[in-house]
Computed example of a mutant assay.
Amino acid sequence: MPYLRTCVLLLAASGAAHAADLNVLSFGGANKAAQEIAYYQPFHRASGVGVYADDYNGHYYREIVAGRNTAPGGRWDVVEVSAPELARGCAEGRFEKLDWAAIAPREAFLTGATSECGAGIFTWSAVLAYNQKMLAKAPQGWADFWDTRRFAGKRAMNRSARYTLEAALLADGVPAAEIYPTLSTEAGVKRALRKLDALRPHIVWWESPAQPAQMLAHEQVSMALGFSGRITRAARDWPQLKVSWPGNINNVNYWAVPKGGNTALATSFIAFASQPENQATYSRYIDYGPTRKEAIAMLPAELAQRLPGSDANRQGALQLDSAFWAANGKSLEARFERWLSTGKD
Rank of each mutant, 00 (worst) to 15 (best):
1 M>K: 06
4 L>E: 13
5 R>Q: 08
9 L>N: 10
10 L>E: 10
10 L>D: 09
12 A>K: 12
14 S>F: 01
17 A>T: 10
17 A>S: 15
19 A>L: 09
22 L>H: 04
25 L>P: 06
36 E>H: 01
36 E>Q: 12
37 I>C: 01
39 Y>P: 07
41 Q>T: 11
43 F>K: 07
44 H>C: 10
47 S>I: 00
48 G>H: 09
49 V>P: 11
49 V>W: 06
49 V>L: 13
51 V>I: 15
51 V>T: 13
51 V>G: 05
58 G>N: 08
60 Y>M: 08
64 I>K: 08
65 V>I: 14
66 A>T: 13
77 D>L: 08
85 E>H: 05
87 A>Y: 12
90 C>K: 01
97 K>R: 01
100 W>P: 11
106 R>W: 03
107 E>K: 12
111 T>W: 04
111 T>R: 10
116 E>W: 00
123 T>F: 04
124 W>Y: 15
124 W>N: 14
127 V>Y: 04
130 Y>R: 04
134 M>F: 07
146 W>I: 06
147 D>G: 09
149 R>G: 05
151 F>H: 14
152 A>Y: 04
155 R>Y: 02
155 R>Q: 08
162 R>Y: 00
163 Y>C: 02
171 A>D: 06
173 G>L: 02
179 I>C: 03
182 T>I: 02
182 T>Y: 09
184 S>V: 05
187 A>I: 10
191 R>P: 03
192 A>I: 09
192 A>L: 00
194 R>P: 04
197 D>L: 03
199 L>T: 12
203 I>L: 10
207 E>M: 10
207 E>V: 15
208 S>Y: 11
210 A>M: 07
213 A>E: 05
214 Q>R: 14
216 L>M: 07
218 H>D: 08
225 L>W: 03
227 F>P: 01
235 A>C: 04
241 L>A: 01
247 G>W: 00
248 N>R: 14
250 N>T: 13
252 V>Q: 08
259 K>D: 01
260 G>W: 03
264 A>G: 07
267 T>R: 04
271 A>H: 02
277 E>H: 12
277 E>G: 05
278 N>M: 11
282 Y>L: 10
300 P>K: 13
302 E>V: 14
302 E>F: 09
304 A>I: 09
305 Q>N: 06
308 P>G: 07
312 A>N: 02
317 A>H: 11
319 Q>V: 13
320 L>F: 08
330 K>Q: 12
336 F>G: 06
342 T>M: 05
342 T>H: 02
